[in-house]
């Protein structure tokens, strides 16, 4: 029963990792951009949430509805002003520009908020649990996190496959030049994709801030968890990404149960094992 609990916790944390991964996967899918600053943007969203909560004293989880639009607008601007200039055949510019952005965001946060760790207190909901059976119980907050991940992925999936904007994004991803021939403005579509990505980042950032302590240096490891979830799940498949996040979360939970020093290592080793034995991921997208 103790192990069942460990695995259950791991699955629920996997929802958070899937949230880290979804925004990353989305912009890679649409414009082949790997945003090294993705993790730092998650941490930035956590600090924006902190500001919202301290300034307006709304409940942290409701702050999502403030932070998400702010981050989406920032994402659209970032794409139009910065990333659109870097897109092309050469992969170096987007990579290095996002790497530079990562260092800039970390140090701006350090300058404004210092290196002290912060946390958003969500009140009673943090300790509330839902009993399942036989003494097994899950926290309301982790459950909420997982439900949010599933809902966001379902919504994105619906958008991509049933709405005109999703069709446009898929078309641009397939062939950006022909998409322009259809009258699409790719720079705008890429802006929309980044806005969506950062809206998801905002949700991830708020949950990050409510769940545990955070500080400006936390970004790179969040990027890595998200990246690992994407690769484990298989590129181009959002449900696979959710599965990847869950596998990562469970691996870390099992590792931590064996020895606290093994928590992170266990996750990385599962990722490397997938890379070694199934480099296309566990649930790759079936093409055509």
């Amino acid at each position: 029963m103790e192990w069942a609990n460990v695995i259950l916790q791991g699955i629920l944390v996997g929802g958070l990792y899937a949230l880290f991964a979804t925004g990353l996967s989305l912009i890679f899918g649409v414009m082949r951009l790997v945003n090294i600053a993705h993790g730092d943007l998650i941490v930035l969203a956590a600090y924006v949430a902190l500001l919202c909560v301290t300034q307006t004293s709304i409940h942290p989880l409701l702050a999502i509805f403030l932070v998400a639009p702010v981050m989406a607008v920032a994402g659209y601007g970032l794409q139009r002003i910065l990333f659109n200039r870097t897109l092309g055949a050469d992969l170096l510019p987007p990579l290095l520009v996002s790497f530079g952005l990562s260092v800039i965001i970390q140090n701006v946060l350090l300058q404004i908020f210092t290196a002290d760790s912060r946390k958003l207190s969500a009140g009673a909901i943090e300790t509330a649990t839902v009993p399942i059976f036989n003494g097994l119980a899950v926290g309301v907050l982790p459950l909420l996190m997982f439900v949010a991940a599933v809902a966001i992925i379902a919504a994105l999936q619906f958008m991509f496959y049933s709405l005109p904007i999703g069709r446009a994004l898929r078309a641009t991803s397939d062939d950006p030049e022909v998409a322009r021939l259809m009258g699409y403005d790719n720079r705008h579509l890429f802006g929309v994709a980044m806005a969506l990505s950062l809206a998801v980042v905002a949700v991830a950032g708020v949950f990050l801030a409510v769940r545990a302590n955070f500080d400006p240096a936390l970004g790179p490891s969040r990027l890595i968890y998200g990246f690992e979830a994407v690769i484990i799940g298989g590129l181009g498949n959002l449900w696979g990404t959710l599965a990847g996040g869950v596998i990562l979360g469970v691996a870390q939970a099992i590792g931590a149960k064996i020895d606290p020093g093994w928590q992170l290592l266990a996750g990385h080793l599962v990722f490397l094992a997938v890379l070694a034995f199934r480099p296309e991921g566990l649930f790759p997208k079936v093409d055509g």
Binding site: P94, L95, S221, I224, H268, F271, L272, L275, A276
Partner: peptide, 24 residues
């Protein structure tokens, strides 16, 4: 291992390897 990842994914893959070394 890392040469299985292309382009930008290679970049993050090498980073994971460095993290593994750190943890070890």
């Amino acid at each position: 291992l890392v040469f299985r990842l292309k382009g930008a994914y290679f970049a993050i893959g090498t980073w994971v390897v460095a993290e593994v070394f750190l943890l070890l």
